[in-house]
Simulated scan of single mutants.
Amino acid sequence: MRNLLILIIVLGGGFILVGMYIAPNQPPLRAWYLANACPTLDKVSPEICAPIRKAERTGADKT
């Protein structure tokens, strides 16, 4: 049971970190996060999706 809880915490943390650091530089992933994940993540903290929105506004395409 403890291992399952740790796995869920690690996956959740990884999901947030991908949204903050990787998604802003990947246009398809950035679009998915904006459409699907950011409405829910904004309830936790608006700072999680801030880099994605900033990259979307500036049109950053570093691929």
Rank of each mutant, 00 (worst) to 15 (best):
A23T: 02
I8G: 07
T40A: 06
Y21V: 14
M20A: 07
L41Y: 11
G12K: 08
V10K: 05
G59A: 08
I16D: 07
A60V: 12
A23G: 10
V44F: 07
S45E: 09
P46S: 11
E47A: 15
D42P: 12
I6C: 07
L34C: 10
I9L: 15
R53G: 11
G14N: 09
A50C: 01
M1W: 13
P39I: 01
A37R: 05
V44K: 05
I6G: 03
A37W: 07
P46F: 04
L29Q: 00
C49K: 00
L17D: 10
L34P: 03
A60R: 11
V44L: 13
A37S: 03
G13C: 08
K54D: 14
L29C: 07
M1N: 14
T40L: 11
L4W: 13
A35R: 13
M20N: 05
T58C: 08
C38F: 05
S45P: 04
D61G: 11
D42W: 07
G14F: 06
I22K: 13
D42Y: 03
R57D: 09
T58Y: 10
R2Y: 09
M20G: 00
E56R: 09
M1I: 13
L41W: 06
I16A: 02
T40M: 09
N3C: 11
W32H: 14
G13A: 06
E56Y: 10
L5P: 10
P46Y: 02
L5Y: 14
R57T: 10
